[in-house]
Design a protein around this nucleic acid. Structure first.
Length: 795
DNA sequence: CTGGGGAAGGGGCCC
DNA sequence: AGGGCCCCTTCCCCA
């Protein structure tokens, strides 16, 4: 070995003489020489002596090779290290190849030669096959297709397909390794404990969002099931639902949802006391003081501000770096922050001055309607935006027509009312400027307008069963664009969309004067104007009837009282969750109805069954229960004429303050949501004024489909009065509503005693409000001439 | 940060 | 011997 080293040393010394000429060589030659020397040193150290001796014989030739890269083997036929079948060695990297062809190809790695040029672009390649492969980019050829069902992806390179298939396998494998699936989001988990951990978080998230949603549409006592999103009045009913429905139906792995939900409910109740009997809503983002319960419930990442429900959803993909100046919660963008600011009285004015027009598909938020329209116009060819764009743009066009017709109708109606307009005349003006002639549904130019979720681009119909809910969840999450947050938004959207009919009038008001503070006042005036028209029409109805039962004609309700009646009906309609909630839980059957059906031994209705059918099955006791929770005591139910004297007016006073506050919150929060477009009420023809009003108010709710983002804790009343910003204003409105209620008491007594209508007739018209309203609702969704003709005449 | 797809490049093998 | 094909790895980008 020593000899070998000496020999090698001599070799290097002998080269040192030639090294004097290094300066004359190119750097490349130096590098090549260095590589060769290094390689020989390597061989001196690790190879057998005999081999080394052989190498020494070869060294002079190697060392003297000028460029070291030749088409002929420089080391001889079997001198290639490690193998005898690769005689062709690269003199640069000393790699050996079995053929000169391979060596030449390899040498291009060093030389950078790219002899093959793409015929479509300027790219050049070292191998012809690479050019051919690259050419597929230009030709669009994707010869390698995934054979798996529901995939069908195609690839330019086979290796990419193979990798894709491996991904498929990996997904299946992951699914196998994660048999515990979350009932809410569908995610899989390897262990039940991890599922429980996740479920707790998920329930908190959903609970918050859904609670906002529930409060918005169902009043302060309403709450939603985080699993199936059904709406309940009070947590007691919800817990009962969770216990009986999801505990029983759920597989063992998902049964934890109900358990955890109970924990969270108790946790959210504050002190650990069973506050559920109170039926109060769970405070959004409330801090739990019950350590015994909360210790088992994982909390959200420590943001310093407690569980932030919205943040957690949004934060999955984006950074929440827009802090709320009031509570410190962080939001991912300014739009989200704006919406949140409406929650705080201190900043509630701000969002109104910065009202938003969010795209229901992407996260874009615009400060002007034109921005949204432009966005939709530009994105209408985008598959994701296609439906929403069509919907928004068509509605924008409809709104324009609507504004014109409103103006004309208001003028005409005002003059008509002043001169004692008849019912038939009123009919022509009451439906918000849309005459009852023709009967064609001109208000929904978009095919998606009838869909309940078109604003979101998701046109799936509502679902009733829990299975459908799960299905919806699964698909919602399978869409990568639809994060959990979006999923919730969809839920809200579904709910609100189905209630679309009730939102339209306010939406129309909003659209008339969309941007100024004057808008609110004018909105109220416009409402009042409509109310007066309604009252005039109602008065005409009453006047057209002869006095009965010896009632003095002087006691016949005056137009003002009739107006109060109508206004009350409006207030009741707005406040009563039954009207909306039948559709509020659009994607699921009305929970109360289902409960009631279950009590009656009936089967839950299929999801396509219209809500009004469910509503019809509600019991008066059920209404009474709801009345105790909601500001709007009355409901235009068939039995209303009997129950109206029992309206608990004082309770209104009790709830005024909270309702006013809530309404001030909701009004701000819902401005965005209320930006739903108008759907002209062409189907209202043939209704009496009250029916028409109910119908309009249903549209008022329905209009909320337009936007999906704003979900705020609010009362239903606040929802109905969203256009008023100040709590004082809301309070005044409530006081006025109270006065109206009192007037209504009188009016209804009069109406009942005078027999303006038989009870059966009232069930069809007023009392059967649910029926008629729902019919109108259904007409709205599936308008036909026949349906219009089926509307019972009020006179 | 992670997963997935697109694309390029290097090397082996067959004909 | 050389063209062509295939496999594999790696890098980059995007959601």
């Amino acid at each position: 070995m020593t000899l070998d080293y000496e020999e090698e040393h001599d070799l290097q010394l002998s080269r040192s003489s030639s090294a004097a000429a290094i300066s004359e060589r190119t750097l490349e030659e130096c590098w090549s020489t260095l590589q060769r020397v290094s390689w020989h040193l390597f061989r001196c150290l690790f190879m057998h002596k005999s081999a080394m001796q052989q190498i020494q014989q070869q060294i002079p030739r190697v060392g003297l090779a000028t460029h070291g890269v030749t088409g002929t083997p420089s080391l001889g036929g079997n001198a290639t290290p490690g193998t005898d079948t690769k005689p062709h060695q690269c003199q640069q990297c000393m790699k050996s190849f079995s053929s000169n062809h391979q060596l030449v190809q390899h040498i291009r790695v060093h030389t950078g030669e790219k002899p093959y040029k793409c015929s479509y672009c300027d790219r050049r390649f070292k191998q012809l096959s690479h050019v051919q492969q690259h050419t597929r980019l230009h030709t669009g050829e994707r010869p390698y297709k995934c054979h798996l069902p529901d995939c069908g992806r195609a690839f330019i390179q086979l290796s990419n397909l193979q990798q894709h298939l491996r991904n498929h396998d990996a997904q299946v494998e992951r699914a196998k390794n994660r048999p515990f699936h979350c009932n809410i989001c569908g995610k899989g988990f390897a262990t039940e404990s991890s599922l429980r951990t996740h479920t707790s978080k998920e329930l908190q998230l959903h609970l918050g969002v859904l609670q906002q949603h529930a409060a918005l549409i169902g009043g302060p006592n309403a709450t939603s099931c985080p699993v199936c999103h059904k709406l309940f009045l009070g947590t007691e009913a919800l817990m009962d639902h969770m216990k009986h429905v999801h505990e029983e139906k759920s597989p063992p792995s998902s049964g934890t949802a109900a358990t955890h939900f109970s924990e969270i409910i108790n946790c959210a109740s504050g002190n650990g006391n069973d506050n559920v009997s109170g039926g109060g809503p769970i405070p959004i983002g409330s801090q739990c003081t019950s350590e015994s319960t909360c210790a088992r419930i994982p909390t959200h990442p420590p943001t310093g501000s407690g569980p932030n429900l919205s943040d957690s959803y949004l934060g999955k993909r984006r950074t929440a770096n827009h802090p709320c100046p009031v509570c410190g919660k962080h939001y991912v963008n300014e739009g989200s922050l704006r919406k949140h600011l409406a929650c705080h009285a201190e900043t509630s004015q701000l969002p109104n001055s910065l009202r938003m027009w969010p795209c229901s598909v992407c996260q874009a938020v615009f400060t002007h309607e034109n921005g949204l329209l432009t966005h939709m116009e530009s994105m209408r060819m985008d598959p994701k935006h296609q439906f929403a764009a069509q919907y928004v743009l068509s509605r924008a066009a409809a709104e324009q027509r609507e504004r014109e017709s409103i103006l004309a109708a208001t003028i005409a109606a005002g003059s008509g009312a002043a001169s004692g307009i008849g019912v038939g005349e009123a009919r022509n003006v009451l439906p918000m400027g849309v005459t009852n002639s023709g009967g064609s549904n001109s208000k929904c130019p978009s095919p998606s307008a009838n869909s309940e979720c078109s604003s979101n681009g998701r046109l799936s119909s509502s679902s009733t069963s829990d299975q459908d809910q799960e299905h919806d969840h699964d698909h919602g999450l399978s869409e990568t664009e639809n994060s959990s947050h979006n999923n919730i938004s969809n839920t809200n959207n579904n709910t609100l969309c189905a209630n679309n009919n009730s939102c339209n009038s306010s939406k129309m008001n909003e659209l008339r004067l969309p941007n100024s503070s004057q808008y609110n006042m004018d909105t109220g005036l416009h409402v009042a104007n409509r109310m007066s028209l309604m009252a005039a029409a109602a008065a005409a109805v009453a006047a057209s009837r002869p006095p009965q039962d010896g009632i003095d004609c002087s006691n016949v309700p005056s137009a003002a009282v009739q107006a109060a009646v109508v206004n009350l009906a409006a207030a009741m309609r707005m406040n009563n969750p039954n009207n909306g909630s039948t559709a509020l839980v659009s994607h699921s059957a009305h929970p109360h109805s289902i409960q009631h059906q279950q009590h009656l031994g009936e089967h839950p209705l299929p999801h396509h069954q219209h809500p009004h059918n469910l509503q019809q099955q509600q019991t008066p006791q059920h209404h009474q229960q709801q009345l105790s929770h909601l500001l709007g005591h009355g409901h235009s139910h068939g039995n209303n004429s009997r129950r109206s004297p029992n309206i608990n007016v004082p309770s209104l006073q009790m709830q005024n303050e909270s309702s006013a506050n809530a309404s001030s919150v909701a009004m701000n929060m819902n401005v965005n949501m209320m930006r739903g477009s108008i759907e002209p009420d062409s189907t209202l023809g043939g209704m009496n004024p009250i029916e028409a009003l109910h119908h309009q108010q249903q549209h008022h709710h329905q209009a909320s489909t337009y936007s999906q983002h704003a979900v705020a804790p609010s009362t239903q009343q606040a929802h109905s009065q969203h256009s008023h910003h100040h709590p004082e204003t809301a309070l005044r409105m409530h006081q006025q509503a109270e006065a109206i209620l009192r007037s209504h008491e009188v009016a209804f007594r009069l109406a009942a005693s005078t027999g303006v209508k038989s009870e059966s007739e009232q069930q069809q018209s007023i009392g059967g409000n649910g029926n008629v309203s729902a019919n109108s609702n259904e007409q709205h969704r599936f308008p036909t001439h026949q349906q219009e003709q089926q509307v019972p005449s009020s006179s």
